[in-house]
Design a protein around this nucleic acid. Structure first.
Lengths: 199, 199, 199, 199
DNA sequence: TCGTAATCGAGACGGTACGTCTAGTCTTAGG
DNA sequence: CCTAAGACTAGACGTACCGTCTCGATTACGA
C-alpha cells in the first residue's frame, strides 16, 4: 500500500525555472543581494517549493550554477601527445570563460556560497573543483608515463597552481587574465615539470 | 572659523572595539551571518557609530580583517641570496597562517566580502593582495638580476601561481596545505623559473 | 450507465473522524489556531476529503460543534404546568453545560465562526439559536394561554434576555454563571412576565 | 545615566495610524481576514512597529476598537428620577449603535478577538463590558434606594439580561433590534424589577 | 564660561527578507 | 467516484536586520 510513491509527483518545470531564475539573479545582483523571494517570484513559484528541495541559499546557488550554467570543463583533457598544446587548450577555455563578466560573476557567487556554507563548498568540490583538478592531474600523469614530465614532480601542486592562479584573479577582481599571462603561466609550470634537459 | 576640528572628537576606543567585535563575530558565524547590529551590540556601541565610519559591511570586514588581525606578510621578502630559501620562508609563513582555522575563516570572510562588494575588493587588493604580490615579484626580479631566474619568465604569473594555489585550497575548503605540498609547489615554480641548465 | 451512484461511495468513518478531530482541536487550541491541515492530519484523512464536504472552516466548525458535540437542548421544553420549574430545568441544563470549560470553549469557537462567516452564522441560527429560542417562546406562549404570563409581554424579548445573558458571560469570559445568578435571572424575567397580581 | 528614557521616543502618529487602519480593515473584511501586514501597509508603517507595541492581533483589535472607535456609553447613566426613561435613553443609544452595520461588524470583530485571545477578552472586559455593566447596576442601585426597584432583585442579572440580549442578536447576525423589541425588553426587565404592586 | 558642533549609546522608524505555516487546488496511485 | 498522500501557487506569520532618524548626554573648541 505504502510504496513511497504516493501523492503528486514533483513538477520538473518548477525545478528548472528555479535554477534558471537563480542564475539570472546572480548575474544581475550578485550572491549577497539575491533573495530566495526574488528567485521564487521570478520563477513563478511558491517560496515553499524552493525550500522543499534546497535546504539553503548556498546549496541552491551551488547547484544552480554548477548544473548546466557554468560551462567549465570537468571532462578529461584531450591527449594528442602534445602536453603543452593540450593544457593550452584547456587553459584557453578556462581563461575565455572567466573573461566573460557573467561567468566571472557566477564564479564569485559560488565562492561566496562556499565561504558561507560548507554544504555548498562540498557541492562545489564534488561537482567542479574536484573533477577539474583530477582531469589535469590525469593528463599530467599520462605525460609522466611517456617521459614528458619528470616523475618526481608534485602534479597536484602543479594543477593547483594552474587553476588557483586563474580563480584567484577573478576573486580579487583583478583585470581578466590575458592570453599572454595565461601563456606565461603555462610556460612557468610546464618548464617546472619538464624532465632535465641536456644533462 | 570653520576648521574641520570642532565638536567632540571621535573616540578611538569605540573604533577599536568595533574592529575587535567584527573579527570575533567573523570567526564565530562567518561573513554572511555576521550582522552590523551584532557588531554594535558586542562592541557596546550605537549602530550609528558603525555607520558613521564605515560605509558598508564589506568594507568594515575588509578593514577589520586586514588591519591587524590577519597577520600575513606584505613586507618585502628577505634577500639572503638564496631564492629557494627566501621564498620557502615566505611560503611557510603563509601556509602556517592558513592552516589556522580562525585565519582560514577570516580569509574566506574576506573573499566573501570581495565577492559581495567591489569597494571591499579594492581594499583587499590595496592592502593585501597587491603588496603581497608585489613583494614576491620584487624578490624574483632581484633573482633575475643575479641570474637565478631566467629573464624571459613571466614573474607575475609565477607569483599568481604561488599565492593562488594556496588561497584556492582555503576557499574550496580542501584540507589545509601540508608542508610537503608547499615544497612541491615551490619546486615546480622554481624549476620553471630556473635558467636553462646544461645548455 | 450514469446512475448518479458510480464510483466509490463516501466513507462515513472519514466524516465522523473529521467532526471528531475538529471538536478536539477546537477544545485544545481554539477556533483561530485550528487549521484544516491539523484536522485532516488528526483524522487520518486527506485535506481534499475535508474540502469536498465542507466549503469553509467556519461551516465545518459550526456543523461539527452543533452536531452531537455541543449538547444543548433545542427540543421543546417540558410542560409540567409549573412554568418556573420548567424554565428552571432548562436554564440549569444550559448553565451546567456552559460551566464546563470544554463546552464554553466550543461556544466561543462557534461565536468566532459566526463572526467570521455568515454561512456559519446561518448554520448556527438554524441548528441551535433559532430552535432554542423557539422552544422557550413556545413554552411561554403556552403559559400565556393558561394565564401564567401576561398576554401583552414581549415573549421573544424575554427569551433573548434569558439566553443572551448566559451566552454574553461566556463570550466575555467572565466567571461562569452560578446557580444563584441563574435563579436571579429567572426571577427577574418571570416577575416581569407575571400577570398583574392583586390589581 | 540609565533613566528609561533613552533612545528615540515612539512616534504617536504611527500609533494613531495603526489604530485607524485596524478599524477600517475590520469594517471591510472582518476579524479573520484582517492581517497585520495589511494593517501595517495601510498605516504606512513597518510591521515591526505594530509588533513592538501590540503583542497579538487580538489585543490590537480590542484596543483599536475600544479606543475611540466604538462609541458606546460606559459613563454613568443619567438619573432624572425616572428609571424607565433613563434606561430607555441608554438602551436606545445602544440599539442605535448596534443597528449601524459598521458598528455591528466591529462588535463581532471584538467578540472574535475575545474568543481567540484571553488578553483581548480581558481588555474587552476592562474597557467596555465591565464599565457598561457597572453603570447600569449603579443606576438600578440608586432606584432601589428610592423604592423604584424591589430590594431583593438580582441587579447584576438584570444588567446582564439587558446587554446580553442585544449583543446576542448582533453576534448571531439576527436582524437588528427594533425599537419595539427594545421597548419590550425594557418592559419585561423593569416589570421584573418593580416593587410588588398592590400587595 | 559660555554657546556651537560633532560625538556617543540607545532605540524607534519604514522597510525587506527570512524560514515556517496554512489555505485551497491539483495530480498521482489505488480501493 | 472516492480515498490518502503530498506537491503546487499564494501569501500571512512573527523575527531579524537593514540603514536612517531622533533623543538626551557628553566632550571639545572658539568666542
Amino acid at each position: 500500500m505504502v510504496d513511497g510513491r504516493r501523492g503528486r509527483p514533483r513538477d520538473p518545470r518548477s525545478h528548472e525555472a528555479i535554477v534558471q531564475a537563480t542564475c539570472e539573479l546572480l548575474g544581475e545582483v550578485g550572491y549577497e543581494r539575491m533573495s530566495i523571494e526574488a528567485v521564487a517570484s521570478r520563477a513563478g513559484v511558491g517560496k515553499q517549493t524552493v525550500y522543499r528541495w534546497w535546504p539553503s541559499k548556498g546549496v541552491l546557488v551551488a547547484e544552480a550554477v554548477l548544473t548546466g550554467h557554468l560551462r567549465l570543463r570537468t571532462a578529461p583533457l584531450d591527449d594528442t601527445g602534445d602536453l603543452r598544446s593540450d593544457l593550452g587548450v584547456w587553459l584557453d577555455e578556462l581563461t575565455a570563460a572567466l573573461s566573460d563578466d557573467r561567468t566571472a560573476s557566477l564564479v564569485r557567487a559560488t565562492a561566496a556560497a562556499a565561504a558561507d556554507d560548507e554544504h555548498a563548498a562540498a557541492q562545489l568540490y564534488e561537482r567542479f573543483t574536484g573533477p577539474a583538478h583530477q582531469a589535469v592531474v590525469a593528463r599530467l600523469t599520462a605525460a609522466v608515463a611517456v617521459g614528458h614530465v619528470r616523475p618526481d614532480a608534485d602534479l597536484a601542486a602543479a594543477a593547483d597552481a594552474l587553476t588557483g592562479a586563474l580563480v584567484y584573479r577573478v576573486l580579487t577582481r583583478q583585470d581578466a587574465v590575458t592570453p599572454q599571462r595565461s601563456r606565461g603561466l603555462l610556460d612557468v609550470v610546464l618548464s617546472g615539470l619538464a624532465p632535465e634537459r641536456g644533462v
